[in-house]
Design a protein around this nucleic acid. Sequence first.
DNA 1: TTATCTAATAACCTTTAAGTAACTACTAAT
DNA 2: ATTAGTAGTTACTTAAAGGTTATTAGATAA
Lengths: 132, 132
Amino acid sequence: MVAQNETEKNNKEFSDDCHKLLSSVSDALYAIGGKWKLMIIIAMARGNNRFTELQRMVKGISARVLSSELKELEMNGFIVKKVSVGYPVIIEYQLLPYSETLEEVVGALSRWGVQHLEKIKNDMSAKGTPKP
Amino acid sequence: MVAQNETEKNNKEFSDDCHKLLSSVSDALYAIGGKWKLMIIIAMARGNNRFTELQRMVKGISARVLSSELKELEMNGFIVKKVSVGYPVIIEYQLLPYSETLEEVVGALSRWGVQHLEKIKNDMSAKGTPKP
DNA sequence: TTATCTAATAACCTTTAAGTAACTACTAAT
DNA sequence: ATTAGTAGTTACTTAAAGGTTATTAGATAA
């Protein structure tokens, strides 16, 4: 009975742990999930601060989507829009310090992406090479 | 002129770098992006191996979506489906070693998720407290 | 016997994400 | 005067993701 109770207690703790992990990952995905947000932040961290630069760097994004993603990123405190009222009017987006907190996530994702591409290549050449 | 060329060269290298980073992150998001894939892998890593267990643990997922995500995860080499033909028939999904390569990504995302929730709470209490 | 559990699948529907194309308004160059 | 670039917005459309309900088929419990 004691052993059984211990087991149940451990199971419960284990599943509480799991719930916590799941909800924190889900929170993260809610804020930075989707196809474009991280990509835009990456491009901005590499010095692309203007609308057209971003559109050129982030391949496949349309003006409409870029515009709405920039708005969301601004609302969530990752970037600011700066309008220099001089002449000509220059509109720049700038990363706020908060976006630096994403470095670890971006690093992990890009390392995994590189290794995943390698794996896929290997899988394909293994399958694509018929035995002699 | 030399200085100008140097600058251009540096810019080009910088933007090549950026393209590499963007494409590796995009590869990663293609494989493990979306609302559910990481969540299912997390739940399985914590000992949830059966369909109904997963449905209970991963809150909000429907049977239809769970079923199709499991198929995709199997196709991409993250999990296997094991059918024990005995009695009663028990169907279990198991993580393959490849899914362990995601540990760093999951860790980074969950840490970021935790700190992001904290930040949102702080932001809200700062706004929600009118000055006396 | 009726109801419930497991592990799905199919048909159908809604929501969200994203793409396309056209347009504005201003500047700058040809 | 025309063309092109910048920074978008609006309206329309399509594609992808996800939800709901019903059904299967065997087992188990009340």
